[in-house]
Simulated scan of single mutants.
Amino acid sequence: MQAGQHTLSCGACGAPLNRLKALPVAAPVSKPAVTHQPVMSSQRKYAQPQRPKPVKRRKKRKSLLRQFAEEAFDLVEDIFD
């Protein structure tokens, strides 16, 4: 080694890194092929298909014209009583 040249060393024991044993590189893991089908658990394979929940219908509001007509009818009815 030449004078004045710096080398990397192990933080734990101080040994030069070029003298340490190389670690094996893990082989790349291949991904499974895409099947575009959902994964089903053993419980869901035999389950009955679920029906969608019924839609709860909202009450229709009275139109403004109908409200005025009811008020006018009540007023006329009060006059005749």
Rank of each mutant, 00 (worst) to 15 (best):
M1W: 05
Q2L: 01
A3N: 06
G4S: 04
T7D: 00
L8R: 09
L8V: 07
S9Y: 03
G11W: 12
A15C: 04
L17Q: 01
R19L: 02
R19D: 00
K21P: 02
L23S: 09
P24W: 03
P24I: 06
V25K: 15
P28R: 06
K31I: 02
P32H: 03
P32Y: 01
P32I: 10
A33V: 15
A33R: 14
T35L: 09
T35N: 09
Q37H: 11
P38K: 07
M40H: 13
M40S: 13
M40N: 11
M40W: 13
Q43I: 06
Q43T: 09
Q43M: 07
Q43C: 03
K45I: 08
K45E: 10
Y46V: 09
Y46D: 12
A47V: 05
Q48A: 14
P49K: 15
P52L: 05
P54R: 05
V55D: 04
R58C: 06
K59D: 00
K60C: 09
R61V: 04
K62Y: 02
K62Q: 12
S63V: 05
L64W: 06
R66P: 02
R66H: 08
F68Y: 11
A69F: 08
E71W: 01
E71N: 08
E71K: 11
F73D: 04
F73G: 04
D74E: 12
D78H: 06
D78T: 06
I79L: 10
F80L: 13
D81E: 11
